[in-house]
Design a protein around this nucleic acid. Structure first.
Lengths: 126, 126
DNA sequence: ACCAGTGTAATAGCTAACTAGAACACTCGT
DNA sequence: ACGAGTGTTCTAGTTAGCTATTACACTGGT
């Protein structure tokens, strides 16, 4: 997996797992791949995986069962909150940044629409 | 100044100065505050300021004149490019993140509009 | 009882980011 | 020539993040 070297890997892994859950690749109650397996897949050290998972466990997103594995919580309330938090966080960051560039809310929407349009036009190559 | 401890301070300073230029607080040709002054204002070390400025100088956004100071370039072309790059980068990040959550472009626009609406409603407190 | 698979913890070492402090180089006004 | 203000460079030390490696603890199947 590729990481942005501007932000801690353990944090990016947290976000990665959040997304896997939101998208549905990891359903409520499902077992998360073993830490050693994740370490291989993401090509990072077990300790780094552990650090990411520890935070998710602390938040109640994951539940750890020693000797068995780590599992996605079945508390859909918690998962729904997490999803909302992730999306709101994304939008809030964009909003704040664009606002600090002197952009009005309406302009932000317009800019996003414009960006999407441009992106659709020229995404054949890569 | 407050920093996000998830990303290097020198990088956040780069972005801060980019924004000051885009907004117009730092006009083309204007002198940037002295490094020691910036260090005080932003409560970081001179070396950290230097590292941020060095990158901006490398990019041609700033021009360094030893003994005189650092100045915003008068090359409006470079500044326009920088502005576009900053805004596009912002939108691209949001787009990619939301797309990885399984969101379609139209939904992103809707989510942003929704967020703006909610924000307007409850931003009296703080 | 054993073993394979799992999570957990601890140690040691590396590097990037940041800080502190000092020294150096240049410009301008006097 | 000097001094104040500026950028530039260097050394030393701290901390956070990551890696490598090892050991420990628990579960479930045989």
């Amino acid at each position: 997996m590729e990481f942005d070297d501007k932000v801690p890997i353990y944090f990016q892994i947290e976000q990665y797992i959040d997304r896997e859950i939101i998208v549905g690749n990891l359903a409520p109650g499902a077992q998360v791949p073993a830490v050693r397996q994740l370490a291989l897949t993401l090509t990072v050290n077990v300790n780094t995986i552990q650090r990411a998972l520890a935070e998710l466990i602390r938040e109640g997103i994951l539940v750890s069962e020693r000797g068995k594995g780590n599992f996605v919580t079945t508390d859909t309330q918690v998962l729904a909150q997490m999803k909302k938090r992730v999306i709101q966080g994304e939008l809030a960051g964009t909003y704040d940044h664009l606002a600090s560039l002197g952009m009005a809310p309406a302009e932000m929407v317009a800019a996003l629409e414009e960006y999407i349009k441009e992106r659709k036009g020229g995404e054949s190559h890569d």
